[in-house]
Design a binder for these strands. Structure first.
Lengths: 347, 347
DNA sequence: TCTAATAAATGGAACGTTCCAATAAATCAA
DNA sequence: TTGATTTATTGGAACGTTCCATTTATTAGA
């Protein structure tokens, strides 16, 4: 226990025999102070067990070094990967990201955002909870704090969004399945209150349209965006009179659920039923059979979001361009050809 | 945009025609102010787009409402579950948890802890990164900020730890495998620089000892605590002259890896090789075959840790009792009997 | 009516920083 | 030597709150 009451800059000044201003300068690494003085001060800092009070500093500086990251579902490994990319660039910029989880709950999100604002964050990176109202960020924008959306966007908002090219990804995946000979296709999981859902489903439908899959042969099953949701989707689809032979899933979690449900029925993904996921989380590659998925370069999107954020802070603006990240289809084992309709496909 | 420069308590006072002290009282929900006045003030708060400055407040109050949660690996769903439990109790107490990831890197951890201290957190819940030195928390303790360890503990530290009964869990799991007729047992994953590892391995060895499994029939393979690590462990073990027929894994991630590696070899977990995990993450139940695992009541531990933290803050102490959480073995499909050594076991 | 007690509202100092303007000390040019 | 310049250091005001001690307004008791 170095000291009872917490030490301040004045205690250091006294200890080192200089003024508080000098200590402040040392703390900020100013080149104005004589090296020997700096050494003396730093020793004093060590001796009194000082911890910097950023709250007090921000009172004057008006520019904090923390940015908030507000995530709708921390249990999805996808977001951990996103966070990794962000942390890389923030660390280099001397910015500390604080993460908070909203658990897909708009009320909780409101509280969390309020807290972060009160804490004086310099900016906010948000993956908004489902059901977020457009007004939720009005006050934050009004306060001049930059916000960027990651992965998800809000319908009517002018807040910049960093997201993968969901439409194109879905087109790629759907074309792949059709080229494999599948003619009765399904889209599994998610629900239409999500912009991402509409984009991905839109790509799916467009590819079906273009390549001549009639509407009657398309099955759309909404559901939770989790393993459990995926399992349910498959059961629903297989109960149909003319079940699909392949499915594009809203995300990898849903795809994993579908594969588990297949195994329960003693069917094999890639042989008896083709499955394609979305996001290409690390696990996709290690699954068995390995999951074909749309890779969105999660960490890269995180980096991009962080960069955009830094630029906004620096230029004191609350506006920025959207950024649509490139996607690619990673073909693995789970998306084999339709057994009843083999077509020659080199891939 | 309500206003250019951010509004303060004085702007509200002017707007509402009261003094700043009155506004402060309203903000704190004091019962001393007349209801009509409170209403008037609250309206003004709304009108000027005020956001509370907690930094300034803490300057006087010395008691913040944020506690920091420092996690070694955010990609492990286990920690998300832990966070869920904590958030439940913190929310009720009006405390906001900020999460930061150290990615198992002690240097990063140092930075993150420093940042949180500077931010003036009221307490810290930490799952320390591997390789954390005992001195890492000296300054924090000296500053009188309560710290509790969750899941992991440090060898020589007197900081209270909330963790499951790792030893007992390993004993339960090992006894289960032996009762199933297995005689050549393995312990997969982890490494001996982790206290948790030593506890779990200790339980494994003790059960082997007690139930008469000679040291020659025990295989211990250290490895990464991930799917990939688990896959490597299985390969190593099966390459032995007399390979084991069952394994207790350091955690579920390792167990999933082992099961994937088995499938690659066309072996089935629970039939050709018994696998038991540790932690019982949500996924264990949904895997195929479903994974037998030691349930540690993750969310419950999170709640407990949060409660201990709150009590420490309240009583201004930096000391508390350790808490060892009860564990139970959840038997599912992955831990079938030894095919070559069937014994009558009702379970 | 006046006084005492209670309720409601207020001014000012303090919290730990930063940063500007000012001072002090050292160096240089003449 | 003197003044000008550069290099180090410093005092004090300001940032947005809280909280204590007061003041002012209201109500009750006589």
């Amino acid at each position: 226990m170095a000291s009872r009451a917490k030490a301040t800059i004045l205690d250091i000044a006294r200890e080192a025999g200089v003024s508080k201003s000098t200590v402040s300068l040392v703390l900020q690494g100013s080149g104005l102070i004589r090296p020997e003085t700096a050494v003396k001060v730093r020793k004093a800092i060590e001796d009194v067990g000082y911890v910097y009070n950023r709250g007090a500093a921000n009172l004057r500086k008006a520019h904090s070094n923390v940015i908030g990251m507000v995530i709708n579902d921390l249990t999805n490994p996808f977001f951990a990967e996103l966070a990794v990319g962000m942390e890389r660039v923030f660390q280099a910029a001397g910015v500390v990201p604080f993460i908070a989880n909203t658990a897909e709950n708009p009320v909780r999100q409101e509280e969390v955002l309020k807290s972060m604002m009160e804490q004086g964050v310099a900016g906010l990176i948000v993956s908004p909870a489902r059901g977020t109202t457009p007004g939720a960020f009005r006050r934050i924008e009004a306060a001049g704090v930059p916000v960027v959306f990651a992965m998800r966007r809000l319908p009517e908002s002018r807040i910049p969004a960093i997201a993968p090219d969901n439409h194109r990804g879905a087109v790629l995946a759907t074309e792949h399945l059709i080229r494999k000979g599948h003619r009765r296709l399904a889209f599994f999981g998610g629900s239409s209150d999500l912009v991402v859902y509409r984009e991905r489903l839109g790509g799916f439908l467009e590819a079906c349209e273009t390549l001549g899959i009639p509407a009657a042969d398309r099955t759309i099953v909404e559901g939770e965006t989790s393993r459990k949701g995926g399992m349910a989707c498959l059961e629903t689809a297989l109960a149909l009179a003319e079940p699909p032979t392949a499915a594009l899933c809203f995300n990898d979690a849903v795809a994993f659920g579908v594969m588990l449900a297949l195994r329960r029925r003693n069917l094999e993904a890639g042989v008896d039923f083709a499955v394609v996921g979305f996001d290409d989380v690390a696990e996709a590659e290690h699954y068995s059979p390995a999951l074909t998925s749309v890779a969105v370069d999660t960490a890269g999107l995180g980096e991009r979001a962080a960069h955009v954020m830094l630029k906004m802070i620096q230029s004191r603006t609350t506006r920025a361009e959207d950024h649509i990240g490139a996607v690619s289809l990673v073909v693995r084992e789970s998306s084999g050809p339709d057994r009843n309709n083999q077509v020659g496909d080199a891939a």
